[in-house]
Design a protein around this nucleic acid. Structure first.
Lengths: 244, 244
DNA sequence: TAAGTAATTATTGTTGACAATATAGCCATG
DNA sequence: CATGGCTATATTGTCAACAATAATTACTTA
């Protein structure tokens, strides 16, 4: 076995466009690029030390993830998530992660289930400190869901949830520095879901995951009704305009 | 004061990248660009009379739709759908269109339902001719589903289904020049779904749509079990295809 | 002949410059 | 004072050339 070889050990050899895509995605999710703001191509390309060509390709990939919106001859804007749009995402998550849970129950081996358990117990260690609570809400929660999706063995499902929706979820959670929600209850529900998966009960796992996400969605809906705020309430009958 | 203004009346003013993206997407779905084949940038750019810059942006958009797969420093290949991957898509459609039907039942006005009805009756006119049957299977079917998704008023759901999955569905249906499936039965099921939506029964609409898509998925699964492996097996039991 | 290797070709990745469009600032005018 | 049009600026869209990498060919050697 040669030691000094493996030419690209530290610096992985991918294209500039792909690299800057990941950097930009991270920046957007972290909120370093503020939602709604405009992307200035010359500035960004100079910042990242690359030309505008690869940058534009990266932006097109971000558009595919729905992290930016491009208007021809005008430019790209960082997407800004309002509560109604987050509710839309929750509706989709409800369906899709229910499916993922059902499939996971069919596919998961005993080792897989053990892995899920250990993930949950690890989260349990963090959950008691305030710091840990935030960790659990922000990352641990999606980590768990991520594992479930992987167990579904549906690669396209994985793409949609982990390639798009979860990034948007993280972005929203960072935006609204809110937390606490109900970490203890959520934790219990996670365990119940693993129970169902462990027993190979796909239907139950699907139902439990549906309820789990539905709860969060309804909480969001309550917040929406509470503050009909800004911009004339769109919740009344927002869809009268049959666009397209 | 010049009068002959409105410069772009016939020619819509979008970017070259967006135009060629739509052209390429159509070519891929129609099968003009054969699945699995490689994309040659200089050749394609010359064919479309544009430079490689906008072309590469278009390819990146195609990657977002999962119509091509890009490998760094190698190039993009037209995606090739095998049955297992189509089954994955059906699983997702089942969940997502069930959701769409449920939401549509909540949102649809009487006019919306009339529109759905007229769409179905229009399809009924075509369904009797062999030609029409193919039309119904190929286009009419997805047209109906398209309308349901619009009625859900969930823009992100619309993006996923109509922006990605339906194009892949069309592509697959063109690839496998097969049909007939079961157009009459499917037609009945469509009417049942509209019934449920008309009555505002979201749960029923969801269940019916689930069953509707599930049937197609299971038929595909049967085909997968029938010929467990590699291509070149369709000539073995080709005796069943008496027609044509 | 087969296999490995070096040279050649083709294709992708990247860049900087140019053209087209939109944005802003300014001045004139009601 | 507000408004409309004009100029100037900035930004996006497009292109052609160059660099880097992969694919192919030709050649050498066992």
């Amino acid at each position: 076995m040669k030691v000094g070889s493996t030419p690209t050990l530290t610096s992985k050899s991918s294209t500039l466009a792909d690299d800057v895509f990941e950097q930009l995605r991270a920046s957007i999710v972290k909120g370093e690029l503020t939602p709604g703001s405009k992307i200035n191509e010359p500035q960004l390309s100079k910042q990242h030390g690359i030309s505008r060509g690869p940058l534009r390709e990266a932006i097109r990939r971000l558009e595919g993830c729905k992290l930016v919106e491009i208007k021809p001859n005008v430019g790209a804007n960082i997407v800004s998530l309002e509560i109604p749009q987050v509710i839309e995402i929750y509706e989709i998550r409800e369906s899709l992660e229910g499916l993922a849970s059902r499939l996971a129950a069919l596919n998961a081996s005993t080792e897989d289930c053990q892995k899920l358990r250990s993930l949950l117990t690890e989260h349990e260690l963090h959950i008691h400190s305030q710091n840990g609570r935030r960790y659990y809400q922000r990352e641990g929660d999606l980590d768990f869901h991520f594992q479930i999706v992987q167990l579904s063995r549906n690669s396209r499902l994985f793409d949609i949830l982990c390639g798009e929706l979860y990034h948007l979820m993280r972005m929203y959670r960072v935006q609204t520095a809110n937390e606490p929600s109900r970490p203890v209850q959520a934790f219990k529900e996670h365990h119940q879901i693993v129970d169902a998966i462990e027993q190979g009960d796909g239907e139950l796992a699907e139902l439990l995951m549906n309820r789990h996400i539905s709860t969060a969605r309804k909480a969001l809906l309550a917040r929406l009704d509470a503050k009909p705020q800004t911009k004339f309430s769109e919740n009344i009958d927002a869809g009268a305009s049959a666009h397209q």
